[in-house]
Amino acid sequence: MNGLTFDIAHLLAGSLVLISFMMLYQDRLFALINVFALHAVVLALSVAWQAYIQDAHHLYITAGIALVFKAIVIPVGLHRIIQRLGIHRDIETAVGIGPTMLAGIGLVTLSMVLMLRVTPEADPLAREDLAFALSIILLGLLVMVTRRNAVSQVVGFMSLENGLVLAATGAKGMPLVVEISVAFSILIAFIVIGVFLFRIRERFDSVDIGALDDYRGERR
C-alpha cells in the first residue's frame, strides 16, 4: 500500500478519536453539538477517502449521508430543540472531567491493546481502523454514561455510531454498509423526534433503573 494513502486514512481515523475526547469535556450542550458536527465532518472525509482508495463507489453514499444528515441536519435540529426546551444553559456532566478523561484514556489503551493483538494478520489499514473504531465506540459509551441529559446521551450514541461506520467502511468489501448506515440514520431520526415530541428533559434524563423503581414505589 502506498505510504501517503495509508497516512491520510490513519490521520483521519486518529482525528476522530481525538474529537471523541473533545466531547468528553464539553459541559455546555451547544458546544457538545458543535463538536459532534465536527466529528461527523471528519467521518465523512474518512469514509470518502476509504471509498477512493478501495475504489468502492457506494461508500460515497455513506459519506454523503454522514455529511448532510449528521453534520448539518441533526445538529441544526438539536440546536432548535434545545432552545425550545430551554435547557441550553445546563451543565450536565454526572462525573467530573478529570476522572472521565482518565477513563477515556484507559478505554483507548484497552481497545488498542485488544484489537492490535487479535488482528496481526489482517490488512494493516483495516486493523488500525478497527482499533480506532473500537476506541470511538467505547468513548461514545462513556459520553452516554457520564451525561444525565437525554440530548447529550443522543449525541453520545451518534458518536458511537460514527465509530461503527468507520469500522464497517474499513472492513474491505463488506456488504450492506450503505444499508446499515441508512438504517442507523432512520434510527437516529426516530430518537431525535422522540426527544422533541415527548419533551424528554432533565426529569427524564436518566437510564438509571433506580429512577423508575423510585417512581413506582419499588424501593423504600
Binding site: 465506540i137 459509551l141 452516554m144 437525554a150 446521551q153 450514541f157 458511537l160 455510531e161 461503527l164 434510527l187 430518537i191 422522540g194 415527548f198 424528554i200 427524564f204 437510564v207 433503573i209 429512577a211 423508575l212 417512581y215
Partner: peptide
C-alpha cells in the same frame, strides 16, 4: 415514555455492540 426511552437507549447500545 420513560420505559420506552430506557429500552430504546439500552437496546440501541446493545444493537451497536
Amino acid at each position: 415514555l420513560e420505559a420506552a426511552w430506557k429500552y430504546f437507549i439500552l437496546g440501541s447500545v446493545g444493537i451497536a455492540l
